[in-house]
Deep mutational scan, measured.
Amino acid sequence: QVALSRTQVCGILREELFQGDAFHQSDTHIFIIMGASGDLAKKKIYPTIWWLFRDGLLPENTFIVGYARSRLTVADIRKQSEPFFKATPEEKLKLEDFFARNSYVAGQYDDAASYQRLNSHMNALHLGSQANRLFYLALPPTVYEAVTKNIHESCMSQIGWNRIIVEKPFGRDLQSSDRLSNHISSLFREDQIYRIDHYLGKEMVQNLMVLRFANRIFGPIWNRDNIACVILTFKEPFGTEGRGGYFDEFGIIRDVMQNHLLQMLCLVAMEKPASTNSDDVRDEKVKVLKCISEVQANNVVLGQYVGNPDGEGEATKGYLDDPTVPRGSTTATFAAVVLYVENERWDGVPFILRCGKALNERKAEVRLQFHDVAGDIFHQQCKRNELVIRVQPNEAVYTKMMTKKPGMFFNPEESELDLTYGNRYKNVKLPDAYERLILDVFCGSQMHFVRSDELREAWRIFTPLLHQIELEKPKPIPYIYGSRGPTEADELMKRVGFQYEGTYKWVNPHKL
């Protein structure tokens, strides 16, 4: 086992960053958080920038500027975001240094004079007029057009580079997404736009490419001749908990499936790229999406959770019991969808996408189930092999396979070949997804960000279904809070070829 401390991990990262040409360590950078008073800024962006600063992973002359409508001070920003920093008493001095680099400007999102004030403020910072500028839009999409237009007109660096990070949702359907994309691309070049999907920053999602293309053993079996089906799962054990009003506007397909799960599907299904260059990788992902037809209604199961009468606390409440959810809402909190990649490698292999709230566990994984062994000599005792990439929690890679049961006879039983990170790298604290992705933006690497043509294809696949749901308002199937979801989803999976045995229990190697 390799035991690495946080300091050692960050030392390795620093070495990698400083050796590259793309990370300008000594240049002045300004990180501007648009929507600095909001939840995302408070819980994710400010803490992430602090962790990067604490670990010495930001360029040395980096300033952080918050911008929002609320009249706040840096002290206010500190008060609301610091509880999420997880700072230790030993880091007190470092924390003071961090907040000394912070400033805040209040202004409207659609007022040109406010942006001119913001620009004057940035120019007044040390070497601010020639600094590289990175704008993070932690804002609702309704203000994107006004904000990007004003940034472009008043706040661009004339000497350094300018980059803009856009948070999902990128529209509600193909038409609104196209409108937003066309607007942003009329102001910024594609190499300046970073559409963030934080799932692409997760260690195991990034590991998929290495697993596939750096190991000879997987190449020959990664196709329709050997793989019976692919299941991509995202499960949350909690409901909307008072935030249903926002969720109800989008629903589970827009929230998770059309982005996170579809991105994971691309990494499983794509061909080997010409290189690890950002556009070479994204070219292959677009090719996969172009091979997927629009979702067919007979390959869809929609569910909505109801309270568990035997549960406790939140578990007793259904989705419609959330006071922020519109009365009688038919918005799905669970969806199972089957897609097919219609190309030579994957023809006929079902890709089953499942996601839901208020389920029995927290889990995100990719599961490849292989065909049955031909010419069975073990009297149907063999179960199908599976390769599982567990994204969260407890990152893991393992192969479910058959071995001989101890004893006199040739009785096979299920076991696993474990390729888990935790076994080799004991207690290594890896940077989280937002840390990686923000560092990628500083480096100018777009590999783990969504390109406009990729986004367009993703919406093309799901828009007809979303429009049909909005028009017909089908009643989702009720499922109990804390269950596996509607049984109809299991029946759909069985119908397209997935075999669920229920006889195997994964042993978490992190707890051995």
Rank of each mutant, 00 (worst) to 15 (best):
E365L: 02
T331S: 13
L289Q: 02
P478W: 06
L430K: 13
L465M: 10
L267P: 08
R354V: 15
N308Q: 07
R456P: 06
G307H: 08
V496S: 06
S483M: 06
I477D: 09
E395M: 03
F449S: 02
R384A: 15
L267G: 11
D432K: 12
V428N: 11
K511V: 13
K287R: 14
S483F: 03
L267M: 14
N508C: 13
F410D: 04
F351K: 00
Y425S: 14
V301Q: 03
D376I: 07
K285I: 08
T331P: 01
L466I: 12
T420K: 13
V507D: 12
I292G: 01
V300R: 03
G502N: 14
Q392N: 14
P476H: 02
T420Y: 14
V507S: 09
G444F: 01
P478C: 05
P309N: 15
D321L: 11
G444Q: 08
L492H: 03
V388K: 12
Q263S: 14
V306I: 07
Y479M: 01
M257D: 00
Y434C: 12
D376E: 06
L302R: 05
V428K: 07
W506N: 13
I352V: 06
T333N: 01
V450L: 15
L261E: 01
N259K: 06
E416K: 12
V268C: 09
S278Q: 10
D490M: 10
D432I: 14
L492N: 03
V268P: 01
A374M: 14
R460T: 02
L417H: 14
M270D: 03
R390A: 15
P486H: 01
I480K: 14
L387P: 01
K429H: 12
N385S: 09
E361W: 03
G356L: 01
T276F: 13
T276C: 06
Q304Y: 04
I438V: 10
D322S: 09
S415Y: 10
K317G: 14
T399D: 05
Y340R: 08
N385G: 05
G311I: 09
S329C: 02
M402A: 05
A358I: 02
D372L: 03
R424S: 14
P509D: 11
M264S: 09
R495N: 11
D376M: 10
R495P: 04
T330Q: 10
E344G: 10
F498H: 15
Q263T: 14
D255K: 06
K357T: 10
F378T: 03
Q304L: 00
F351W: 05
V300F: 10
T399H: 08
N259S: 10
R484F: 15
P309C: 10
G348T: 06
S452T: 12
H467S: 10
T330V: 10
R354P: 03
K383N: 14
L471F: 10
V450M: 15
M408G: 10
R495Y: 07
G485N: 03
Y504T: 13
L289R: 01
T331Y: 00
V306A: 07
T333S: 07
P350F: 01
A297C: 10
G303H: 01
R367P: 02
G313R: 11
V373H: 12
S275P: 00
E386M: 04
D490G: 09
A336V: 08
A458Y: 14
K317H: 11
K400S: 15
P393C: 02
G407L: 09
M402E: 05
V450Q: 15
Q499R: 05
D255F: 08
F442I: 11
K475R: 12
R367W: 04
Q499F: 11
Y319N: 00
E470I: 05
G307L: 04
Q380T: 13
P474G: 12
Y305N: 01
G502L: 13
A269H: 01
A489L: 05
E271N: 08
K405G: 15
R451N: 07
K405Q: 14
E491P: 03
L471V: 11
L261M: 07
G407F: 14
V450I: 15
N427Q: 14
E413L: 12
D376Y: 04
P273A: 04
G444H: 04
W346F: 04
D279H: 11
R282G: 03
A297L: 15
Y500K: 13
R367T: 03
L439Q: 10
N385I: 02
I292W: 03
K285Y: 13
K426Y: 12
D440T: 03
T399V: 04
Q369Y: 09
P478G: 12
S445Q: 14
N308I: 07
D376P: 11
H371A: 08
K404V: 15
T276R: 10
V507M: 15
A336R: 02
P412H: 05
A396T: 12
E491G: 07
E386I: 02
D310R: 11
N343P: 02
K494T: 14
G318A: 06
